[in-house]
């Protein structure tokens, strides 16, 4: 049985999918490490955010919602920290950013 909440949740999940796909497109198309990092961290986090939102709307109880939010926050912290670390060591290795 699909309720309104389920449908809205499904819509959120569908909206999240393009972000994952464009994240990958960006990873493949962008010219250097730094711009690829942009694609990777931003697009994927928004995608994951929409998917957790959608699944939260469909969740059976608040426990699952709390867990989903915890996972999302964990991934946010992890990806922004590792993105900073990769960019930082790229700079320290004197890898120059691509310039138009």
């Amino acid at each position: 049985m699909m309720t309104l909440l389920d449908n809205v949740g499904m819509l959120c999940i569908f909206m999240g999918l393009p972000f994952f796909l464009t994240g990958t497109v960006g990873l493949l198309r962008f010219p250097d490490i730094y711009t690829r990092l942009h694609a990777l961290t931003k697009a994927d986090n928004v995608g994951l955010g929409l998917i957790t939102l959608g699944l939260s709307l469909q969740a059976d109880n608040l426990f699952i919602v709390a867990k989903l939010i915890l996972i999302w926050i964990l991934v946010l912290i992890a990806s922004s920290a590792s993105c900073h670390l990769v960019a930082r060591s790229a700079i320290q290795k004197n890898i120059h950013p691509w310039v138009k």
Partner: peptide
């Protein structure tokens, strides 16, 4: 924060799908 990160996702999406890469990076 939520608004800005949504915008940043859309921004990256737009740039990645643009036929000519819409990037002009710098430090």
């Amino acid at each position: 924060f939520i608004r800005q990160s949504a915008l940043s996702g859309i921004d990256v999406m737009r740039r990645a799908l643009c036929r000519q890469l819409a990037v002009n990076p710098g430090l």
